[in-house]
Computed example of a mutant assay.
Amino acid sequence: MDKALVINEIDEILDTYCEDCFLKKQLSKDNGKTAAHNFCITRCTIGDHLKFLGEEMNKLGK
């Protein structure tokens, strides 16, 4: 897998799942952007997959 494929997959996931995410919008509104971002990183399955893809991209860069 090369960097371009990983970047395309990340973009597709963000556009498909994160762009109109109700939880992210509601958490931002209720608790602020930091709380919403924290939720996405630590408890969202999509966030876990994005984190995995980021780690894969880091491996490719070395």
Rank of each mutant, 00 (worst) to 15 (best):
M1T: 07
K3G: 01
M1N: 07
S28W: 04
H49N: 08
K29L: 05
G32I: 01
E9D: 12
N8A: 10
L14N: 14
L5P: 02
L60A: 06
K59G: 04
E12A: 15
E19H: 15
I7S: 01
A35L: 04
I13C: 09
E9P: 00
F39I: 03
N58C: 06
S28T: 04
N58I: 07
L27M: 04
G54N: 12
D48C: 14
E9A: 05
M57N: 07
K33R: 04
M1G: 12
D30C: 02
K51N: 13
Q26R: 09
I41K: 14
I46T: 11
K29F: 01
T45W: 03
F22H: 15
L27K: 03
M1W: 03
I13P: 05
K62T: 08
K3W: 04
N58G: 09
M1F: 07
A35N: 08
C40N: 02
S28A: 09
A36M: 03
T16E: 14
I41A: 07
C44T: 07
D2Q: 11
T16Q: 15
K25V: 01
D30A: 08
F22E: 15
C44G: 03
G32Y: 00
T34Q: 10
I13T: 07
L60R: 01
I10H: 06
L14Y: 11
M57H: 04
C44L: 05
K62R: 11
K25M: 06
I46G: 00
C40K: 03
K25P: 01
I10T: 10
N38Q: 10
K24T: 02
T34G: 08
A4M: 11
K3I: 14
K62S: 09
I7P: 01
C44E: 04
G47Q: 02
I13M: 13
G32D: 06
G54I: 05
C21A: 06
K33C: 00
L5T: 13
K24C: 02
A35P: 07
C18A: 02
Q26F: 13
I41G: 00
H49W: 05
K33T: 10
I13V: 11
C21K: 05
D20L: 14
M57F: 06
K62V: 04
K25T: 12
G54W: 03
F52K: 15
C18D: 04
K62E: 11
L50P: 03
H37F: 14
I7T: 14
L53R: 00
T34R: 07
C18N: 05
H37K: 15
E19A: 09
K51F: 04
A4Q: 14
K33W: 02
I10M: 14
I46D: 05
D30R: 02
C44Y: 08
T42K: 13
K24I: 11
G47S: 06
